[in-house]
Design a protein around this nucleic acid. Sequence first.
DNA 1: TATGAATGAGATTTCATTCAT
DNA 2: AATGAATGAAATCTCATTCAT
Lengths: 183, 183, 183, 183
Amino acid sequence: MSPRADAARNRARVLEAAQEVFAAEGLGASTEQIARRAGVGVGTVFRHFPTKEALLSAVLAARLETLADEAERLAADGDPGTALFDFLARTVEASGPKVAYADALERAGIGTDQVVAPVRGRVTKAVGVLLERAQQAGAVRDDVAVAQVFVFIHGASRAVPTIADDGVRAATLRMMFDGLRPR
Amino acid sequence: MSPRADAARNRARVLEAAQEVFAAEGLGASTEQIARRAGVGVGTVFRHFPTKEALLSAVLAARLETLADEAERLAADGDPGTALFDFLARTVEASGPKVAYADALERAGIGTDQVVAPVRGRVTKAVGVLLERAQQAGAVRDDVAVAQVFVFIHGASRAVPTIADDGVRAATLRMMFDGLRPR
Amino acid sequence: MSPRADAARNRARVLEAAQEVFAAEGLGASTEQIARRAGVGVGTVFRHFPTKEALLSAVLAARLETLADEAERLAADGDPGTALFDFLARTVEASGPKVAYADALERAGIGTDQVVAPVRGRVTKAVGVLLERAQQAGAVRDDVAVAQVFVFIHGASRAVPTIADDGVRAATLRMMFDGLRPR
Amino acid sequence: MSPRADAARNRARVLEAAQEVFAAEGLGASTEQIARRAGVGVGTVFRHFPTKEALLSAVLAARLETLADEAERLAADGDPGTALFDFLARTVEASGPKVAYADALERAGIGTDQVVAPVRGRVTKAVGVLLERAQQAGAVRDDVAVAQVFVFIHGASRAVPTIADDGVRAATLRMMFDGLRPR
DNA sequence: TATGAATGAGATTTCATTCAT
DNA sequence: AATGAATGAAATCTCATTCAT
């Protein structure tokens, strides 16, 4: 294994550890904790991500990457009338109650972040496709913009995962996104 | 002015400062900052609120108090068909993008907090009345429970205030709560 | 009751409270605690004892006062051969394991304290009498000086009260002071 | 020099500094002061000793370690009739007037401290040997138990070092321990 | 490149002391 | 004279970041 491969592996491990730790402990978790979880020294964390901000950005970018993948897959495969709602449901259900995709989207929306920006473009585009198709299929109101869909994701992935009961959670999620449907 | 009155005034100033600072900087803001904003020494903050947790609880309780007042007022005065939605709109609009009522509700839901618990009862009751009336008036789906209304508030007050444009923000808010209306 | 009498009463209550609190919690106990125990405000404590040091001195002086009383009484009444040892036993037994007369003596020895100095003179004198008589009665070695008796009190009242068992404690105390007897 | 060795050296420096500072200023000395004396940052002190309690425990354990070494050496080498008294004299003379071995023993006796407990066993055992030998040699009363020897050490190391004059100090120490001799 | 010890700024909290009432 | 709220310096402890090995 080349040294490069080793380094790349470490980077990935840190990123994964950071996701887990942030999800479990909130964004205030310490770098040491992340390093321990990744099985590396703190120095290694800082070698790959020069500041905590950078690490956070990378985590968020990774999350957005997943979102983009999901959205692109559904844009390719899915039934136009349901694909957007499938995407929304999956996205929110995949969020933990502590650190949700909400944070990813929130920061992505605010930050002029070099790392996050490009991925953000991808997600926006893919979700845009899902939205347009849903509107053409008459499943979503015509006056909804992509930005608003993100606001829905943000809100829902913050609030809905706090509901413990599976049935109630699913019903609430559906209700919240019903606001997007034509009346 | 008796010393008691002065102390009460100081307590109120600290509380107000805390709300402002938390809103501006997030929940991680330092006690010193709050003291400075309130124009008092750190010691005074700690005299009134013996831990940072206690201060946070007090801030949240104060917010819930406002919510309860609003809900009770609308339960007394308002048009059954619109009062709940008026309440939701006001509540969310009064939330800043950083620290929303969301946090108040989130913590109130989770924490076994002696300070927050009683107020929580009041809000739940008053919103329950608004909800019931709205359902009787046919403005809200019959299968909606109070807890779900709070989830909507939580989500919306986190996400919606991130929208800068007044018109878009209002429209998005309306859409999100449209999910509660019968189809 | 004249205001003077009131003030004097408060002074006495503070002093007593201070003794109790220092004994229970150690010398680090806070002024607030003492005030609470005395049933007065902190301000009153500071009116009577302008610094914590001053309060401490007063407590120590009061203790030394008690010692002096005891020593003088025994010098008047007691059997020359046993009076000194009676005095030592009482003094040490009256010490708690936390804050012993040891501290009083230690500080009295070191401090150039205006409050403590005069009482110190009284104790020294009275114990000196007890010592001299004991020596004349052949109960104590001739080469013992008063200062050394105080060292014995200091050490014993620090260490001996840590023994829980009454019998063992008494025996140990006796042994320690046996060092003062002629061989 | 490996980083481990350096770290160990720093740990030792901190421990040594703590001993000096505690001896000079009393147990209330601040962590900053200790750090300064050790020539390291505060963070380093806390890295090695996560609480002030832990640092204190370590200091006490180190002192007991020294005591144990001394006692074991004398148990191996010394003249049965004098070894115990040599040990006592050295121990007390090595104590400063501010923080004596007294504190170590006091705390060791009281605390259920994981750090101090094991060393305590060693000292007790070694002093037990010295005591038994002294008793067999007729130099110490038969009814003295090890616990009582520690009470003597405690008392003497608190009180005796307050005597400035070398001759008087030695004489007083001898007298105090003479209580242990048969009459 | 990786490690983890060291750093020190900053956060929370306590407490002797002051001072307006 | 008494009260207790206010003050702020100082103490303990945390953590992002640096750097010697």
